[in-house]
Design a protein around this nucleic acid. Structure first.
Lengths: 176, 176
DNA sequence: GGTCATGATGATACACTATATCAGGCCAGC
DNA sequence: GCTGGCCTGATATAGTGTATCATCATGACC
């Protein structure tokens, strides 16, 4: 079945699970971009930092508010252009159900982009709002098989699961 | 694995694949609602008819335009409230990637609702814009397994696959 | 009949999400 | 210095979805 599955991230219970890690991730992201002939400019780096720094999926306009702390004239296109770039290069994902963005759980440098994404699924907790990105190949395989049966050629797959995370299910109190 | 998979619908190539079928579907939908203590009012029936009548997924504001043909003062809440009801009762689905709505491919009366949905996935052709709803249990099973491994309790699963449908892939011309 | 709660719809305004478009700045290469 | 490409600034607008209050019908209950 699934040879590797499931590393949870963006947990809302732990505040900011990363700290100085983020700067290291940004450096790796910059290197990855460079290797592909693109550049992680200061603006894009700022937006990526804000996304990674968020404990939960964050919306474009929330990003915009925070971005304005460091860039006075920031406007919607400012943040959307940066987001498009980051998605294009596989550094972040968009969660369609939430109209929000999260950092990619896979480290960059694996050659995955928007055109050639790595398989990924999101588990969205309806109680605490946290999300986990899992990378389960059996899910991707089942999707590919079902699509293939109909002669459908898959480009991209969006899998977003809504439910209750283990933490919230264990502690049925108001701790979420 | 997957005991049953794949009935394609909403094909854009065939114009309106159904005709008088729609009225029969509406009647069955009304009966299903009644059996559950809800009512498919004239407004909801009109909106459901418009959704079913659309060859492709249709947006809320496109529905609103058409609805105004039969209901002069229709406003956004008019159509959104009807859509919410129809989704709640499993009569239509929302495709998140498209912000659009399609009729449920499963006939009503199977007891599935928004709270207890039947497994379903969408194949979205990026060339002709058609969508197919498939009901593959192996996909749902893989998702459930992956989630369960992390202790996540699944409520609802959104699977939306973007790619090229068999028809468009066969006829690589501009016929899409 | 009168009253009241419920659910559905009408109607207005607003919030949130995303894009189009044009202008200016920076830099590499000729 | 000019050009072309890329990035950003800035303004306006399009597209999607909700909040809120008023109105109206229905049915329960006294």
């Amino acid at each position: 079945m699934s040879d590797h599955a499931g590393h949870a991230h963006h947990g809302a219970h732990h505040g900011h699970p990363r700290g100085g890690d983020i700067e290291a991730s940004l450096d790796r992201a910059a290197a990855t971009c460079l290797a592909r002939g693109a550049q992680l400019t200061e603006l894009r780096r700022q937006v990526l930092r804000l996304v990674l720094d968020s404990a939960q999926p964050i919306g474009a306009y929330a990003l915009l508010d925070r971005l304005r702390g460091e860039r006075r004239g920031a406007a919607p296109p400012t943040v959307y252009r940066a987001l498009d770039f980051l998605i294009e290069h596989g550094l972040i994902h968009k969660i369609e159900r939430l109209n929000a963005f999260v950092g990619c759980a896979e480290e960059p440098g694996h050659g995955h982009t928007h055109a050639h994404p790595h398989p990924h699924q999101f588990l969205i907790c309806g109680r605490c709002g946290s999300t986990a990105e899992v990378c389960d190949e059996s899910v991707a395989g089942a999707v590919a098989a079902a699509a293939g049966r109909l002669g459908f050629h898959v480009h991209r797959t969006t899998v977003e699961v809504e439910g209750i995370c283990a933490h919230c299910h264990d502690t049925k109190s108001t701790s979420g």
